[in-house]
Simulated assay, not measured.
Amino acid sequence: MRSIETIYEKLLADFARRAGFTPEAGCDLAVRLWAAAAELQALEIQADWVLDQSFPQTAQGVYLDRHGAMRGLKRLGATRSGGTLRFSVGAPPVMDVTIPAGTVCMTAEEVRVRTSEEAVIPAGALYADAPAEAVEAGTGGNVVPGAVRFLTACPTAVTAVTNPGAFTGGAGEEDDETFRARILESYRRLPNGANTAWYETTAMSYPGVTAAKAVGRAEGPGTVNVYVTGENGLPDGELLAGLQAELQEKREIAVTVKALAPTSKTVNVAVAVTPKEGADKEAVLESARRAMADFFGGRLLGRAVLLAELGNRLYDLEGVENYRFTAPAEDIPADSTVLPVLGTLEVTELMEEA
């Protein structure tokens, strides 16, 4: 990009060549030439920006969305994390205790989660589990096991709540680089109405689908299995039924297509982290827990779990000096039919040897 000074000197030289004299610095004409040089630089900047937005390799924001629309692709919106809440009573009740759907509980950091279905603690039992989701979409709802501890408006008999497993699947709106990669992939794997790319693109356009992987000849010639995930990971029956109808209507002639949930593969994560000198140890460990939980979700369908990628997430955190994984012991290879899900998560302080 040319500087204003460079453009001004060029205008000055051109004027002198045509007029036969060079204007004095600070005169009215010199000021006018300087102003023209500034406007020309602004036009060059604008032209470069327009050129960047004209190609998916360099477009940003809403202009990248328009490139995606030309390929039949939409940016993935923010998703809520999902998990399970366990409600407990101090003593076995003599009557069933009902926990309504929509019951809100919180973590110490005031992350709110709510039950998505009604749950019942049977008479004589001490607890009941209920599926739940974060109130707010985004990565903030990804909480580690045991983080949810505060009740809001539960039945009086309920005395405690916790989450036995992590809440995962919460993600922010798809960023430019991730969306750009999908757009460019649509050019490399052109959907033609018959290949796996077409089935994946069709599935991704269905509301509620977060990721899709198509496997051709899955059950022999003329068969295609389309594995999908929803916002909270594994899809529910309603999503699969709706997508099945959609694919059935649009499929090729003489092809059997199935919309299926992937097989879940539990991944236990155990890592020791060394905080930098002077850093808040507990804050660093909590950031590390959140970074590990954020990695898992429906968008991980068909992807590998690489220790290097998990490690990079830790190194990107402020205050992390070093780390050491004890689980998983090795990389987990990619499989189009498998969704890696977070199992146990243990983040401790790594004590460096003297």
Rank of each mutant, 00 (worst) to 15 (best):
Y8R: 07
E9M: 06
D14A: 15
F15M: 04
G20P: 15
G20F: 10
C27V: 00
A30C: 05
A35F: 01
A35N: 05
A37Q: 06
A38C: 08
L40Y: 00
L43E: 13
I45A: 10
I45Q: 12
A47R: 04
W49G: 09
Q53S: 06
P56Q: 10
V62G: 02
Y63I: 07
L64P: 07
L64I: 03
D65Y: 09
D65C: 03
A78P: 12
L85V: 04
R86D: 10
I99M: 14
A101W: 04
G102N: 04
C105D: 10
T107P: 10
A108W: 02
V113Q: 01
S116K: 11
V120T: 12
G140L: 09
G146I: 01
R149I: 10
V158Y: 07
G165Q: 04
R180H: 01
A181V: 07
L190I: 09
A197D: 10
Y199F: 08
S205W: 08
V215A: 11
A218Q: 03
E219N: 14
T229V: 06
E231T: 04
N232D: 13
Q244A: 12
Q248H: 11
E277A: 09
G298D: 03
G302F: 14
A308S: 14
L317K: 00
E318A: 14
E321M: 08
R324P: 08
F325L: 09
A327L: 15
P328C: 06
A329Q: 14
T344D: 13
E349P: 00
L350R: 12
L350P: 08
L350A: 07
E352S: 02
E352C: 00
E352P: 04
